[in-house]
Design a binder for these strands. Structure first.
Lengths: 156, 156
DNA sequence: TCATATTTTCGAAAACTATTCGATTGACGA
DNA sequence: TCGTCAATCGAATAGTTTTCGAAAATATGA
């Protein structure tokens, strides 16, 4: 068991499997990692209880439900307190079209990943949720041509 | 049933529940959407078969496994063919530390979201996978201070 | 409008899986 | 070496998923 994390080789194997496919059965995982189903079940329960496994989310094909356009917004904010900025980040994340928000260092403050139906919809989202907001100084928009997301573990 | 998507109100309810928590049982979902378990099961099977539901991924606490630092890389590429660029996007997505890659329009070509252990690790990743690569003209790095991800449906 | 075809839903049975629990094993420090 | 503790196991139970034929609802066409 690694002293760093409190997780051993088998825990990592379980995490790797579940990040690849959260719908694997406990029985299948147990077989893959070489444990009895009851032991594997105990480990997964423990990983959840310790806050290592945070949950699982199904992935839907956004094209199919009519969200054909993706964009990235580079948002510049005014000089604000940390509290105001963090609140704006949370408010932004709560917008249904927003898939992700990053508060970053550098020339831009916020990077916002949005999924929309079309250009008209994109215009509406930017106008309603960013340009209208007093804390926002400037929004630069980039269209996403290609995108790849990695859901697995960041270990080779 | 919506003619646009081939999905009705109940399908959307199922998708909303599963994107929030992919570990909900079929029985629970059936109860929430007001169907018999067998009918609900049939719908979920169909959503998978039609490519609407693409899969599910467990979410792990990256801090706990030692990935304490997140960064966004803004990568500028040379004038290249679409094929070469798409290949580079795929190669980038395959790097374990890379969580997501966006090929975008505008002043930067690639936005890369990475999770690393520390600054030393970040330096290594940028050096090994970007600066070393001939197609990369320039990499600008931003540290991620705060991040929120939305896994649910982009509908109110 | 009515009859027919098709799809969807349902409940019950069967098959399978998760979950619990006491006993056993194995690791570790005294 | 011994005792303690945590992890593992197998078997029993409880619960869920999956299948399937029949019924209901919905769509189709004359």
């Amino acid at each position: 068991m690694s002293e760093e994390t409190g997780l051993d080789r088998i825990d990592f194997a379980i995490l790797r499997l579940l990040t690849k496919d959260a719908w694997l059965s406990n029985k299948q995982i147990a077989a893959e990692v070489g444990l009895a189903p009851s032991s594997c079940h105990e480990r997964i329960k423990s990983l959840r209880a310790r806050g290592v496994l945070l949950g699982a989310h199904a992935e839907v094909n956004l094209q199919v439900i009519g969200f054909a356009l993706q964009a990235v917004l580079f948002v510049q904010l005014g000089k604000l307190s940390i509290e105001v900025v963090d609140d704006f980040v949370s408010a932004t994340a709560a917008v249904p079209e927003v898939r992700g928000v990053f508060l970053v260092s550098g020339r831009t403050d916020l990077i916002v990943d949005v999924a929309v139906r079309d250009m008209q919809h994109l215009k509406t989202v930017i106008s309603e949720h960013f340009n209208r907001h007093a804390v926002v100084l400037r929004v630069e928009t980039s269209v996403v041509f290609n995108r790849q997301q990695q859901h697995g573990m960041p270990l080779p």
